[in-house]
Design a protein around this nucleic acid. Sequence first.
DNA 1: GTTAGTCCAAAGTTCAGTGAG
DNA 2: CCTCACTGAACTTTGGACTAA
Lengths: 467, 467
Amino acid sequence: MDLTSPNHFDVPSSSKVTVCNPSRPSMAEKLPPGTLCVVCEDLATGNHYSVPSCNGCKTFFRRAVVNNRNFACMGNEDCPVNKGVRCACRHCRFKKCLLVGMDKGSIQNDRDRIGYTKRTRKEKQEKRSDSEDEESRLANGICDPLDTSNHDLGEAIPQGLHGLESSDKAMDPYLARLTTLENNFTLLLSRGRVTPYESLDEGLMANSKFHEQITVKMADPIATPSTVEEHKMPFWRSRIIALYIDWAKTFPAFRNLPHSDKVALITNHASSYMIMCEAFRTPEHHNDKIVHPDGHYFTRYPPKDSLFVSTLASAAAKSLEANCAAVEASTAADATLAEAIAAANAMQYGQTAGRGGGGQTGQTGQRVQSTPTLQQLGMTNEMGKMIALPLEYGELPERYGVPIPADYGDPSAGLEGRPDIHEVFEHGSHDRHDAVIIGKREEAGTPGSGPSSAMMGGGGGRTECPS
Amino acid sequence: MDLTSPNHFDVPSSSKVTVCNPSRPSMAEKLPPGTLCVVCEDLATGNHYSVPSCNGCKTFFRRAVVNNRNFACMGNEDCPVNKGVRCACRHCRFKKCLLVGMDKGSIQNDRDRIGYTKRTRKEKQEKRSDSEDEESRLANGICDPLDTSNHDLGEAIPQGLHGLESSDKAMDPYLARLTTLENNFTLLLSRGRVTPYESLDEGLMANSKFHEQITVKMADPIATPSTVEEHKMPFWRSRIIALYIDWAKTFPAFRNLPHSDKVALITNHASSYMIMCEAFRTPEHHNDKIVHPDGHYFTRYPPKDSLFVSTLASAAAKSLEANCAAVEASTAADATLAEAIAAANAMQYGQTAGRGGGGQTGQTGQRVQSTPTLQQLGMTNEMGKMIALPLEYGELPERYGVPIPADYGDPSAGLEGRPDIHEVFEHGSHDRHDAVIIGKREEAGTPGSGPSSAMMGGGGGRTECPS
DNA sequence: GTTAGTCCAAAGTTCAGTGAG
DNA sequence: CCTCACTGAACTTTGGACTAA
Ligand SMILES: [Zn+2]
Ligand SMILES: [Zn+2]
Ligand SMILES: [Zn+2]
Ligand SMILES: [Zn+2]
């Protein structure tokens, strides 16, 4: 190419001073002679948004802010920005705009603009109503996750189980709240009336069960799966997920997040949460199995062969694959990174679920082994000591110790087969798709709400190949 | 407008279409309706490169110049060029483009990726194959994580350890690649020269060790911590993290992601990966401890008291808190949700790390218990069977069976204390700000044989993040 | 005179087709 | 049938010109 290797980021020797220009004290009423754009070193056309800048950077900055854009860098977020390559990475260009001090506050609301009478093109019905949504949201400070000040919903968690009996030292209220919350979770999980949400949106919309009166007691019978319902996920897991969403809605800081962030948080954390929840609520005396409230449990599938690349490798690879695929395959407005990650998490979870939490991961528990029940074992653990009842669940349920079906976790096992979080969340994501259409997304000009501006591209498309 | 800028990127000022340039009467300000392309007599869509031309000729000209093409004429270099036959001879078409005055100088550098356009991408019709969904997706090549087509780096993973001896059935190449990859991971982890990255950015930027020649062999001695180095994380974990980043960079689909996605993936998956990696590489015969390549191991701390709200609750709450705080405190441009989540994950990881991967989570392993070594146990497990050597690591290292320090995992334990991924990654994120100054990094600007296309290579899609 | 915002021609990119191998 | 480079219509983005405050 005749441009003679355009990659000279020639440092215009003296012009560098502009970055640290000390002659910009309070107000710039002075006219620059041949000043350069602080962002791209093109010729500046004046002070724009408090910074000497060129027309391009001025407009770029304004558009980015007004449309609430969020660019991604394909490099390492340190791309050069100068006149020649300023369009190459919008992320880095915008970052530099901010770095050199371009002031968002100088951007005016174009709400009451005066008509541009020169010539009128086809009327673009722009509704700029909510352009300040994002700004105001961001303006909010950091908030205490348990802070109740900014929400009308009373934050007091209805009784149910409270913290344990007063320990010797005063329990700090923060911990007390969490104690109650966790105890209620256990209570609701084990015997509450919990109906899985059809979609994540529905779950986010509904009132949190933790905010309602909790009427069940530890004395009540443990929940049992209805025989008529269809289950996308194993019984207990579907309950965990439903309560997990309700649990999150308990935190004011969560509720104050924009919808897209809620979705991202819930989906991203779901797999970890479920695994931890199952493990956490498994009685302490088991270290080789996961026990559900009704006594069903599953264990790790013992390794059989010595093939080194076992499922971990492919699980990890598939996780990555799922991420990338989700990112790449995403179309338009509402495919968020969160979904991609959630997909991968779900996938990975699907691979590692049913593992029983064993410390080793040599083989994935594709199938839950039907081990002797505790009763068959005489209720003793390996040390020969009597196993106490799982404290979390109170009385020993009748079916305690009954192993779950042998094909639990098997993808081909039917209704109670492998949990497919992915599917659940995809469902949710479709829902959101609809919501977006209902919304007002029409053009890049919709600054405000929701997942509108979300989406990102991944690899896939080829660029031009030099010959 | 550019005057004497030494910058080679800017277009020649003369080529700019301006009203004040009367020397070119043919180029009116407005396009007469019905003007024909000067090159091919198709309907012109405007002035392109200083010449009224159609879309096709515009694009053709740009591509020819940008890719520095050199066409050959199969005839006498006087082929006709018109709407019907304009594609017949590219040499003559390009020649005519230049002849009628298309201006190379008006061609700009590559720009950042933009989003998918309004037209909807053709929807991949869903073939409902239930369980082998992933398989089919792989087959479709939507995102083969091992796809090597769009990267110059040879994807062949340098030898080191290859897959196991041929099993009875032919190992599919996909699996074979993963086998090699995992084996090399084990090899590098246990005895490779691995230096932890100072920041995630550094890790993402560096060449993957998996792409270099792997010279270590299983016969080499197992790595030992240098006594002079300062460790932010326990020795083996810092190695795992470093290799984990290199491992990810092995996948083309990963490399094609925008930076923020890479960061999100790495940070989100780090805790799971590390735990799984440790467990996976722990010899199969241990189900109560995690064993490192040098024989150090740690076990779960048995529960002592019955306080129900143990660390899981506060860990989960802190996770949420960190998420919310990070999201809310974020300032527009570069605080991504991904970072927030990463922060939370890291925090949560900090809480759950050191647990040893036990299935139960009743108590966090604040302190690793110093249990009897395997040697003290006479190398037997609970079943009384002799414990074989850990296959993954070959010979029994000398120090095998030595427990790691008792305060391993204790936040107050000093250098070898609790791993703080969070800190490591925060460090990385800070680094990003320093690098903005016009650097020596060149990448995006080459229209022709550009590193730009190499870098962004197969990456398609828009570079925009969810907000 | 300055600096906001707006407009729109002309840059750029995307992706469904097309057709050769 | 599949793959892959090329094509061009359909979009998006950019920034110089211009208007308003
Ligand atoms: Zn500029
Ligand atoms: Zn960049
Ligand atoms: Zn033409
Ligand atoms: Zn010809």
